[in-house]
Design a binder for these strands. Structure first.
Length: 426
RNA sequence: GGAGAAAUGGCAGAGCGGUCGAAUGCGGCGGUCUUGAAAACCGUUGUUCCGUUAUCGCGGAACCGGGGGUUCGAAUCCCUCUUUCUCCGCCA
């Protein structure tokens, strides 16, 4: 969320920038201003009353010690009225603080100045593209047909065991999946990300910290009995490692990576885009997360983007990098690059990574800060994350693009990981 | 799952109703000494909110796992939740 301080110092800037996200913020900001001014007044009144009580209490203590009981009794009576006041003001203050928080959470992050205006994916900006779109022979198969032909991914079996969106990988597909995970993790380590194995269930505070709660609650699987959530991405546990922490400037940036399964309910998404591996309830992903000094976070965004680009290049997949327009960006991001790879049999671009700078939006929520080297000043940090990469659509594109008469060819870079060069019959 | 013990500042660890934001030690920072360093000695050392201030700062409030209560006054007493440890049971 945005900080009250930032909002009150730059109301017009926020209102204007949020128009890029097609969000009308003026009403909320006006309301926040009023609430904040009330909050300050109440806080001051309450502090003064409490100060009086503290002072009188000390007097009572001293008087009792000197066994001046009657005087002590008199002073004690004075406190009754003040306590009454505190009893009234205190819930009022909490009420206002709750209202402020509720409103703050409704404001999306302010997009970076380089983010184009727009309302739909058509307004996104193509940044770069690379790789060769393969020319498939007539009768090329989609990945779900290939999965069946080679008996390597079983969607029906997943239906039986769990439900739709939970495929079962078998044999060489299972090994290829594992190879991809290892490849991605090794590359992330080489690029300086610390490898982590995080919990895949998180509590409410963590889900709030990265912004899944309160608004995206319906997207997560919830374990009611223990009030825990299955992670939709390891961004959640990874970033929350830093919740309520004050880092030192000299320790920046902090870079983490993790493989984890991810769980998404995908409530409300039906239709043709969900075939095969295109949209699942459970999928594997390697994530990269970075916590960075505000002055360097946009360099980091570019570096993370380059890292992801390197991965798709090594896999020899045709890709494009897209700068999302305001209307297509997520609520929490300040700037996002999407990566899409071309899946040749479906003839579709599939999103395989989303790399975002959240600036201080998440760190405000989770009280993530750093202490400056040259003094005592404490500042908010910036957080970033990106998929590097999401597995199923990579798998889909690899299967479709690399199909040949003799089978599906494994990209060279992965052969040391898979131990085989081709997926064929049997 | 059952029984018991505990949770205090960056860490270790005292305090168990009054002047305690909290002894002491370690660590960190600054200084003296030294050619330099170490040792020794001296000083300093959290966060949030409100007010004030051009800034350093200053004044006030809150925070001793979270939430609630008792009291003029709570780190200290009570309730509740969470977590950790010990024992028993179960188990990859």
């Amino acid at each position: 969320m945005l900080s009250l301080k930032y909002l009150s110092e730059n109301p017009d800037l926020v209102i204007n920038r949020l128009k890029v996200k097609n969000f009308q913020a003026a009403g909320i900001i006006t309301r926040l201003k009023q609430l904040d001014s009330n909050r300050r007044k109440l806080q001051t009144a309450l502090d003064n009353s409490q100060s009086d009580i503290n002072r009188l209490s000390k007097q009572v203590g001293v008087l009792f010690q000197q066994s001046k009981k009657e005087e002590a009794e008199k002073v004690r009576e004075q406190t009754i009225k003040i306590k009454e006041e505190i009893k009234n003001l205190s819930p009022e203050l909490h009420g206002i603080e709750d209202q402020i928080r509720e409103l703050l959470v409704q404001l999306p992050n302010v997009p970076h100045e380089s983010v184009p205006e727009g309302v739909s994916p058509e307004d996104n900006l193509l940044i770069r593209e690379g790789g060769q779109v393969p020319v498939l022979s007539a009768g090329a198969l989609s990945h779900w047909e290939l999965a069946k032909k080679y008996d390597i991914i079983d969607f029906d079996l997943g239906n039986k065991i769990t439900g739709s969106g939970f495929p079962v990988y078998k044999g060489k597909a299972a090994k290829l999946q594992r190879a991809l995970i290892n490849f991605f993790l090794d590359e992330a380590s080489r690029a300086g990300y610390l490898e982590i194995i995080p919990p895949i269930l998180v509590n409410e505070a963590s889900a709030f910290g990265t912004g899944q709660l309160p608004d995206k609650e319906g997207q997560m699987y919830h374990i009611g009995e223990d009030n825990l959530f299955l992670i939709p991405t390891s961004e959640v546990p990874l970033t929350n490692i830093f919740r309520d922490i004050i880092l030192l400037e000299k320790d920046l940036p902090r870079k983490l990576t993790a493989y984890s399964p991810c769980f998404r309910r995908e409530a409300g998404s039906y239709g043709k885009d969900v075939r095969g591996l295109n949209r699942l309830h459970q999928f594997d992903k390697v994530e990269i997360v970075e916590v960075q000094h505000p002055e360097h976070s946009y360099e980091s965004l570019e570096n993370m983007t380059s890292h992801v680009e390197y991965l798709v290049q090594k896999l020899k997949l045709p890709y494009r990098i897209i700068l999302l327009c305001g209307g297509d960006m997520s609520f929490h991001a300040a700037k996002t690059y999407d990566f899409e790879v071309f899946s040749a049999a479906q003839e579709k671009w599939l999103e395989v990574s989303s790399v975002s700078n959240f600036e201080s939006y998440q760190s405000n929520r989770m009280m993530l800060r750093f202490r400056e080297d040259n003094g005592k000043k404490i500042q908010q940090l910036h957080t970033l994350n990106g998929s590097a990469l999401a597995l199923p659509r990579i798998m889909a594109a690899l299967l479709e693009n690399n199909q040949t008469k003799r089978g599906i060819l494994i990209p060279e870079i992965l052969i040391p990981y898979t131990g085989f060069e081709v997926i064929e019959y049997g």
